[in-house]
Amino acid sequence: MQQAATFSAQTAPPPPHELRRGKSSGALGDAIFAAACRSAGVLVLLLLGAIILELFLGGLQAFRTFGPAFVTSTEWDPVQEVFGAGVSIYGTLVTAVLALVMAVPLAFGIAFYLTELAPPWLRRPVGTAVELLAAVPSIIYGMWGFFLIVPFMSTTVQPFVIDTLGTLPVLENLFAGPPFGTGIFTAALILAIMILPFIAATMRDVFETVPPVFKESAYGLGCTQWEVVRSVVLPYTRVSVVGGIMLGLGRALGETMAVTFVIGNANRISASLFGPGNTIASVVALEFGEAELGSLKLSALLGLGFILFVISFIVLAASRFLLRQRLKA
């Protein structure tokens, strides 16, 4: 009762000058706050612009020295000061695409399981486990790959594959070479494991946007679960599924630590999947320490960064364009 009385006393109309002052201070506060929010937004825009600009300016010396050959040349010789990005661009693309080839079917299986097959009480724990897999830092994947997967590859998988597939006429070159355990294939395998949870989680989110009525109609016609997913869910979500895969590709392209541990770090393009290689990110991470300020090598590394940024930007922009229709309503 007392409270109500105070309340009514407070809401009694203030004198006119009070009202005006209150209003104008609110307007001033609003203007400041709105300006602060907007300038924070502009800051983010400038940030991306600055990243592109700084990487480009940093790489300018290398671009000027080598011209377009910087992108295509496969030579990387710090002693002669000849730098070409060809090998690392090749390694980046090959490992990322191989990783996708391995990760996408698995991710689809997990998404199918989580949306259609799993009993409701299991969906959340399994979904959380997949998301936790995405949260593990990449350096941990690198260590795990280096101490667990690499020995396993060199003692078990690679000798077996070299002895069987390596003797076939066409596949011979693909699986040639000594079984070091490191190399392009191992890097792609670790990358696949790293991007698997991202793609699986996106696919699950996308699958869940299919209206239940569509699926129920198909089940009502007697479709099996696989037929429902193949003929209803996948056609309905096709564009977004591709977007999710592109998102995984974007992650795989720029991954640094895990790849650096297992790829073998050699600047050559080998026909064998078991051969060593490098990626843009691994070259930058490993050789940066040896690049002096102002040297051509530092400029070449920043130029590599610029190329990686351009590639990732295209892939991520495409992914966002494809995903937006479904997930960001």
Binding site: V42, V44, L45, L55, G58, G254, E255, R320
Partner: peptide, 28 residues
């Protein structure tokens, strides 16, 4: 348009290779 641009850029930064952010800060 500004908000859409900011949202787009923020989404790109969300997935951009973190090593490039390291290179950028090295430069600035």
């Amino acid at each position: 348009p500004l908000a859409n641009a900011v949202r787009f850029v923020s989404d790109i930064l969300l997935s951009a290779p973190s090593i490039l952010i390291g290179l950028f800060v090295y430069q600035i």
